[in-house]
């Protein structure tokens, strides 16, 4: 049913630290690697070795530059994936019931066997989190690695989304954002985690942590003492003379 369930107590999601992300794309690769063989149809590529390669990815990392009012510009690497919104517009537009939000943990999923590939859910998502697979014609999106996080066949350390497990800088955190005492919720509270495009009213579960304030730009000029030279002797006499003219 594509009606949204009442808000769940458990809200599983990601917290992404824009301060520590170095833009290495390891999460993109790990995501594609895991989800190519797990939940649903594989993430296909089209013309992978041609001049215009294209493919289905559930996670993309952008790079932006921010110019503050004062101080030097900052580079921010920005991973973008499904935010598992509480008020998910992609769910209610679905005509077949393929798109749904789980009542127990809030994960937004697609039942690919019921998807007709109309693409309306991708149109309804502000974040570009859904991509129609070019080969299978069904909608693909982040599953929060639902086939890892509850998988008791995996060692406990691996029961997190593939992107979180692989991140070499610890910029991605997974947990229950519905529990105010969870590690992720405390992180959001301490670091001022925020929602993307709050003006669209989607109430995302995933939060982003802003880059930390960088040190003030002191602009130390190491040549300054050398430039403050007083001429002496004949040059000093000339210097004083010329200033008087």
């Amino acid at each position: 049913m594509t009606a949204l369930p009442p808000p769940s107590a458990r809200k599983l999601g990601l917290v992404i630290d824009l301060d520590t992300c170095v833009g290495c794309q390891a999460c993109v690769t790990a995501c594609k690697g895991w989800n190519d063989q797990g939940y649903g149809v594989p993430l296909s590529d089209q013309n992978a070795w041609g001049s215009e390669p294209s493919g289905t990815f559930l996670n993309r990392v952008h790079a932006y530059e921010v110019q503050p009012d004062t101080g030097p510009a900052q580079v921010v690497n920005f991973p973008r994936s499904c935010l598992h919104c509480e008020n998910a517009p992609c769910v209610t537009v679905c005509p077949t019931g393929a798109s749904y939000k789980r009542a127990e943990d809030g994960i937004v999923l697609v039942n690919e066997d019921a998807c007709i590939g109309c693409g309306l859910c991708a149109w309804a998502c502000p974040y570009g989190a859904r991509e129609l697979d070019g080969a299978a014609g069904v909608m693909k999106k982040c599953t929060l690695c639902v086939d890892r996080i509850y998988n008791e066949n995996l060692p406990e350390a691996d029961r997190v989304p593939a992107c979180v497990r692989t991140c070499p800088t610890g910029a991605r955190h997974f947990g229950d954002l519905g529990d105010s005492e969870s590690a992720v919720s405390r992180l959001v509270a301490e670091r001022g985690g925020y929602d993307l495009m709050p003006e669209l009213g989607t109430s995302p579960v995933n939060k982003y942590l802003p880059p930390r304030a960088k040190g003030a730009d002191e602009r130390v000029d190491i040549l300054a003492p050398l430039l403050d030279v007083k001429a002496s002797g004949f040059a000093g006499w000339l210097d004083r003379l010329l200033e008087k003219i």
Partner: peptide
């Protein structure tokens, strides 16, 4: 607002997330 970076200053795209087009 899309990136939340507006709170720091004026953001602009530095590099694309992928080299050619996508869906």
């Amino acid at each position: 607002t899309a990136t939340g970076l507006g709170r720091l200053g004026a953001p602009r795209v530095l590099a694309p997330a992928h080299t050619s087009s996508n869906y």
